[in-house]
Every structure is written in C-alpha cells, then in structure tokens.
Design a protein around this nucleic acid. Structure first.
Lengths: 201, 201
DNA sequence: CGCAAAGATGCGGGGCGCGCATGTTTCTTG
DNA sequence: CAAGAAACATGCGCGCCCCGCATCTTTGCG
C-alpha cells in the first residue's frame, strides 16, 4: 500500500472516529458536518468525498468490523463451519476488540452516550445496512466452504443473515442490560442457538 | 374508529402508495416530495406531517406487513410456536397478500422497477429499520407465549430477529432469481431451517 | 349552535449532499 | 530527475429536504 492509500485510510478513520466521538458527546443533531471536518482539519467538502452522509461516517467502524468477520471466516477454513463462525465473530466483536483503539476518560458517561447514539433512528438504519453489506461477503465466504451457489442456494445467505441477526441481538442485549452481561458470552450463546435450532428454548 | 382517524389512515396509505409507485416508475431521486404530495392532492408540508422522510413513506407498507406478523402471531396462541410463526409470516408475505391491493399494468416492468428501488441504499436502511421495529413487537409476542422476560432473556429477541432475517433473505432471493421462485416456498424453507438449526445444511 | 381539539397549509431557515471548476500533492515514465 | 498524468483537497453554488412556527379550516362534542 502506497503513501497515498495509507493517508486516505487514516483520514477516513479519523473522520469516522471524530464523527462517533462528537455524536456520543453531544448527540447527533448537535453535530454538524462542519464540526467533524474541523476536528480532523479538513474541508467540509472533503468530508463528503469520504462519506456520503454523516450516518455513514459514524457507522464506518461498525461496517469495518462486520466485514472483518467475513475476512476472519475465510482464514479459518480448517475448522468446522460454526466453530469458525463463532471464532470469527468473537475476534471482531469480543470485549478486547472494542476498546482497544481509543481509550475514553469517563467510561460510564461514554456508554450512556453510546446508548443514545444507537437509539437514533437514522443511525439504526445505517447500522443495519452496514450489516447487510457485510452479509453478502459472509454469504460468499460460507458458499466457498460448503460449495454452495450464491445464485441458486438459499443456505449461504440464510447463514449469513442469521449470524448477523445473532450479533445484532447480542449487542442490543449487551447495551440493554445494566450491569452489562459480558458480550462474548452473549455472542457465543446466540450463535449456538442459531446453529442448533431455535425450536427448543 | 372515528371519521377523523379513518381519513388520516387513508391519506397516509395514499401518500405511501404514491411514493412507491412514483419511485418504481422513475427512480428515487427523480421523485420529489412535491410530486408525491401533488399525486395525492395534498400540500408538501402535509407530507411531512405524515412521514418524516421520503424513505419512511416508501417503506410504510413494508413496516405495516412486518407489524402484521406480530399481530397474527398473537392471534394464534393455540398452535406450536413455529407453526404459528410460519403461518403468520405466510399470511402477510404470501403471494396473494402482495398484489391484492393495487393491480399494475405491466408486471415485468414493475418488477424491474422494484428491483431498482430495493437496491437504493437509503431505502435498504429504512427497510431494515422497519423490520427492526417490528422485531420488538414479535419478540414481545414470543415472550408472551413462552413466558420469557424481555429484559433478561435472549431467546425472544433471538427468535424475532432470526425470523426477520429469514423473511428478508427469502424476499431477497425471490427478487434475485429469474424466473422467480415462489415466495411462499422460500419463506417456509427459510423458517424451517431457522427452527431446526443451520448447522446441518 | 358554538367551542375546543386536531389537522392542513404557507413561510422561512438551517443543513445537507453533490456537481463542477480549480489548485495542489503524489505517482509514473522517459 | 524532470515533467506530465492521475488522484486528491478545496471553494462555490444549487436544489432539495426536513422541521418549527403561525394561521386558517375542519371535525367532534355538549
């Protein structure tokens, strides 16, 4: 990767992070595109060269992690399918992967802000869309394993969307509970239920 | 329901239908809010009294059907859970439920337009959000049956999101295939797989 | 009938997303 | 290494969208 692409990736990540931070701190509609651009030191016009909307910028990190699941899945072609899926999800959504990058001062206040943020209607839609985009990749990765055909078989798509459903549900439950239930346990449980069948509670 | 509420529901339905029809015919960004309002005979400002965005208007019918699944589920408390779920989904997303209301002249051209419409990024997010809203209702309906607790149990939420995942996947596959596979068969298959477990393709 | 509540409309403003033209930095090639 | 090509950053301006507010009209009720 040349200098060009690296700088671009850095700017994109910086914009996304600034968008998230400001939104968590002030709330979505108290953050203007201009604010995000200023925080990174770029022109407002440039912001829209990287992201086609505020929501897309905020959700970028989530999209990245979802795509990472597909990537991790391809790297684990030796294990049985659902072991690989569980492991892939945990590496990207596990507790350590979350706060690795940017530490925050007041953890409680941060979580409260995150709760407000993910409740925002516009962002919910965008988050789900990010999951749907990654779903296509995951379905492709599953099809590679099982030898299925993406155009004719339902199974790969069904697995992908069920996995994302489990992830979304686990995260939602994690954010809903207070004190929070460990997210890795929720993810493992949810995926196990999906794999084994939901007919038996 | 008084005259007032009926008229309001009619206007809302008319706005939503006009939004869908125009979008299918011309494409999303060739339809202005003014066009939709004009088609119904209402002021543009009034449009935004009913829907807070163009996307929300277009997706309204989808939201309605998704909520209907929860409703149908509550009415079938006698059957086993997954029989009731399958039946509830089929009554709302089955082939007859689709074209019942507004007949269309050129079916092929219509389907082509629908394919373009559902590919629209902004609408995909809004559609998924509608499913997520209904998910809460479905989870509540499931919890009523199984005696689960929405705040502490993962199971009702997991069932709800897995059901919506199955529905979305089935519809997506229905729109992807040409000639189209019957949607009721896809729905039944997808739900059966979810209920029985995905570990065994 | 007459009044209170709810809805419809007009107006205006703050943003937002993007096309276009222009200047600037990075990559490639002779 | 110089110079052109390609990619990127920025400024400007437009059209549209969504909403708050004030006003007018319709509906429901006693």
């Amino acid at each position: 990767m040349g200098l060009r692409e690296r700088k671009k990736a850095e700017t994109r990540a910086a914009l996304s992070w600034a968008a998230v931070r400001l939104t968590v701190e002030r709330g979505l509609d108290n953050v203007k595109v201009e604010d995000i651009a200023d925080a990174v030191g770029v022109s407002p016009r440039t912001f829209n060269n990287y992201f086609s909307s505020k929501a897309e910028a905020i959700v970028f990190r989530h999209l990245d992690r979802c795509m990472g699941v597909a990537e991790a899945l391809r790297e684990r072609s030796a294990e049985p399918l659902w072991d690989a899926i569980t492991h892939a999800v945990l590496t990207r959504f596990g507790p350590d992967a979350q706060s690795a990058a940017h530490p925050v001062a007041d953890a409680a206040q941060w979580t409260a802000g995150v709760r407000v943020m993910v409740a925002e209607p516009a962002l919910r839609g965008e988050m789900l869309r990010a999951g749907a985009i990654a779903e296509a990749e995951i379905a492709a990765a599953v099809a590679e394993r099982t030898g299925g055909d993406l155009d004719h078989d339902l199974y790969p798509h069904l697995v992908a969307s069920a996995v994302m459903a489990a992830v979304n549900t686990a995260i939602a439950h994690h954010l809903r509970t207070d004190p929070p239930v460990p997210v890795d346990r929720l993810l493992t449980d949810a995926l196990a239920h999906i794999a084994a069948g939901l007919s038996t509670p």
